[in-house]
Design a protein around this nucleic acid. Structure first.
Lengths: 172, 172
DNA sequence: TAGAACGTTTAATACGTATTAAACGATATG
DNA sequence: CATATCGTTTAATACGTATTAAACGTTCTA
């Protein structure tokens, strides 16, 4: 086994992760490579190491910049752009997930308000509307307590908080 | 505005939700229609109301059965299969999301163990490996406290628990 | 027992989106 | 000033997956 192979496995996995976050495989792979690189990489480096086209890397790395997952940096003596990873990937995933959930919530809000305008709902529909509204309420109150960012520190806090919760709401 | 239009909007939204859960649009749409229907529907009903092919409905409804999101029921006097929704969709989403996260976690576990076998990691790589392991630890300890199922009751509990948490870990 | 009414399967197709190749503009360089 | 080196854009293509149409087996029914 060599370092190269490990990188390939890691990069594959981060690629899948990217796809499951609604981005795409390439975005994840670029991030994965930069994450494990000990120095900033140029667009050309990424092209050759990931065997992707220049256009694709250019496109996807801008997506990563938009998520503040990578940063373009200046290397003196070179005309190239270099990219450095933001290693706080938990936070990046968190922000991404948060946005997606907010999108879903707002969709449901719109569906709910449509329903509420309607005065010819049958019994079941009224029941289901009520159920959705309950869920919506809970989520709304939860999302009011959700932080903008999350760090590994706050994760650790969360972990310890969970044991507090466990004692408050013990399993039957 | 009429009921039909509302259903279309609702069904569209649940379709998107299905897609964002890594299922597909049709699965979501079938669930959405059943969710708002006051009586069980047959495969033919779904075909005509959703304007999908029989094959597609047949395929996707079995996917929903696998997730226990719908139940096949017997209606006396008819040879057709009828389907009834499991309205506890929060739980369905939860189970689905849980599975996806566990998949991601296990991928990371495999990547981590690959790294640990390697003895030629550079400084950055060692650092990053450590970071990933930290995150993994936190997630592992969290996932040990995550319930198999989640109900609207437990959601409400969670909501009240959050205010407890808030007092334990007040915002700066 | 022939045919209709089912749900399933499968092979073909449609569709969205990721990816590429190549042209391009801008900037540096010799 | 001609050429090389960049990153970006765009139009064409590749690719995976959702969807369909149609054939099929089975069960019911007239």
């Amino acid at each position: 086994m060599n370092t190269e192979n490990i990188n390939i496995n890691f990069i594959r996995i981060v690629g899948e992760l990217g796809a499951s976050l609604g981005l795409n495989r390439s975005v994840g792979q670029i991030y994965g490579l930069l994450y494990m690189s000990d120095k900033p990489l140029s667009l050309d480096d990424l092209v050759s190491k990931l065997k992707m086209s220049k256009g694709s890397v250019s496109l996807n790395i801008r997506e990563l910049e938009r998520w503040e997952a990578v940063k373009k940096i200046w290397v003196s003596g070179s005309r190239k752009d270099f990219y450095e990873v933001n290693p706080d990937f938990i936070n990046i995933i968190y922000k991404r997930t948060k946005l997606r959930m907010e999108k879903i919530l707002s969709n449901f809000n719109s569906a709910i308000s449509d329903f509420e305008k309607n005065n010819s709902l049958n019994k079941i529909q009224k029941e289901r509307l009520l159920q959705i509204k309950n869920i919506q309420n809970v989520f709304q109150s939860i999302s009011g307590n959700v932080p903008e960012d999350i760090s590994i520190n706050s994760m650790t806090k969360l972990s310890s908080a969970l044991s507090v919760l466990k004692s408050i709401f013990p399993k039957k």
